[in-house]
Computed example of a mutant assay.
Amino acid sequence: MQTSITNTPTRYGWAMILLHWLIGILFIGQFALGFVMVRIESQRAAFELIQLHKSFGFLLLGLIILRIAWRLGNKPPPLPSRVAALERRTAPLAHLALYAFQVALPLSGWALVSVSTLEIPTMPFNLFVMPNLPLAESDAAESFWASAHWYLAYAGIALAALHVAAALRHHFLLRDSVLTRMITPSSAGE
């Protein structure tokens, strides 16, 4: 049985599954890295971790844009028929919120480094210099974007935790296919 790259009426294709788990791991990893990098005492280690955090942030932004584009061209399988009407209405809103946070968070980080008066270049994975956004540099703007990035990070991780809890609820309490269809890809003939 050959697996399908695209979604079917009952399961996600391997492209969406791969993007889902890769983005999820990166999103959670970025939160942990961000938490550590601002608490480390060594300035050199902190600088290296910040550069790594920025690199993964740009990677995450690219992957989430790819995922949104893929999602627009590949209709997800509908929720099982046993899912209540309220959840059918709120699930798409929760997914939209996840996408919004996953775009807004790296953009707020990019804005933060763009307005910084330190003018430290951003070099994703030491491959090239990422240009700054066309925003005015100032301490006030840096403070604003640092706060925005912080609040978005904590709200985003809370939303991700809610997403995980909902998936586990479907799997262990409702005993439906919502979680397993994001683990096992669809078949080409399905």
Rank of each mutant, 00 (worst) to 15 (best):
Q2H: 15
T3F: 15
S4R: 08
R11A: 06
W14L: 03
M16R: 02
I17T: 06
L18C: 09
W21Q: 11
L22Y: 00
I25H: 11
I28G: 06
F31R: 03
L33A: 03
G34L: 05
V38R: 05
E41T: 00
E48W: 08
E48Y: 14
L52P: 00
H53R: 03
K54D: 02
F58R: 02
F58E: 02
F58S: 05
L60A: 08
G62F: 04
L63D: 01
I65V: 14
A69H: 11
L72W: 11
P77S: 05
L79Q: 13
P80Q: 08
S81H: 12
A85I: 03
R88V: 10
R89D: 11
R89E: 13
T90S: 15
T90I: 13
L96C: 12
L96E: 11
P106W: 01
P106L: 01
P106S: 04
S108G: 09
G109K: 00
T117P: 05
I120M: 09
N126A: 14
N126L: 13
L127V: 15
S138K: 03
S138I: 03
A141E: 04
E142S: 06
F144I: 02
W150S: 13
A153D: 05
I157S: 01
A161L: 15
L162R: 10
H163N: 10
V164H: 13
R169D: 09
L173F: 13
S177V: 02
S177F: 00
S187H: 14
E190C: 08
